[in-house]
Simulated scan of single mutants.
Amino acid sequence: MSPEKMVRMANQIATFFETQPDVDKAGRVAAHLGDFWEPRMLGQLRTHLEAGGDGLTPLAREGAERVLAEKERA
């Protein structure tokens, strides 16, 4: 998948959870990414973050960082 599409998808997920009343919005983004993104997509997301994470909204970035940290610990 192109980096642009991946960023757009992550940002769309974050935009959805931004509108929800949950307190831990980044946690919900992380949970969604962990539940629905396959390992290759998460690997591409990790590479994108390591390269600076251009284009990711702050909430998408935080959720991505959380899910990737959780996957490292598992």
Rank of each mutant, 00 (worst) to 15 (best):
M1A: 15
P3C: 03
E4H: 13
E4R: 13
E4M: 09
E4S: 13
K5V: 15
K5G: 11
K5W: 06
K5H: 13
M6W: 13
V7S: 10
V7D: 12
R8Y: 12
N11L: 07
N11Q: 07
I13W: 07
I13D: 10
A14E: 00
A14F: 00
T15N: 14
T15A: 15
T15R: 14
F16G: 08
F16P: 00
F17M: 05
F17D: 03
F17L: 07
E18R: 10
E18K: 07
E18D: 14
E18I: 00
Q20I: 10
P21D: 13
P21H: 06
D22R: 12
D22L: 15
D22F: 15
V23H: 13
V23T: 13
V23I: 15
D24I: 05
K25I: 04
A26F: 10
G27S: 03
G27C: 02
G27Y: 06
G27P: 03
R28D: 12
R28W: 10
V29K: 00
V29P: 00
A30W: 01
A31Q: 12
A31N: 08
A31M: 08
A31L: 11
H32R: 10
L33W: 08
L33E: 04
L33A: 07
G34D: 04
G34P: 01
G34R: 01
G34T: 02
D35E: 15
D35K: 14
F36Y: 15
E38H: 12
E38F: 12
E38D: 13
P39H: 05
P39M: 07
P39A: 08
R40L: 15
R40Q: 13
R40S: 13
R40E: 15
M41C: 05
M41L: 15
M41P: 00
L42D: 01
L42A: 01
L42T: 03
L42P: 00
G43P: 03
G43K: 07
G43I: 05
G43V: 07
R46G: 03
T47H: 15
H48S: 02
L49W: 04
E50R: 10
E50W: 03
A51N: 13
A51E: 12
G52R: 08
G52M: 09
G53F: 05
G53V: 06
G53K: 02
D54T: 13
D54C: 03
G55V: 12
T57S: 09
T57W: 03
P58F: 04
L59V: 10
A60K: 02
A64D: 11
A64E: 10
A64T: 11
A64Q: 06
E65H: 11
E65C: 08
R66W: 06
R66F: 05
R66N: 05
R66L: 11
V67S: 01
L68I: 06
L68R: 00
A69D: 11
E70A: 10
K71Q: 14
E72K: 04
R73N: 04
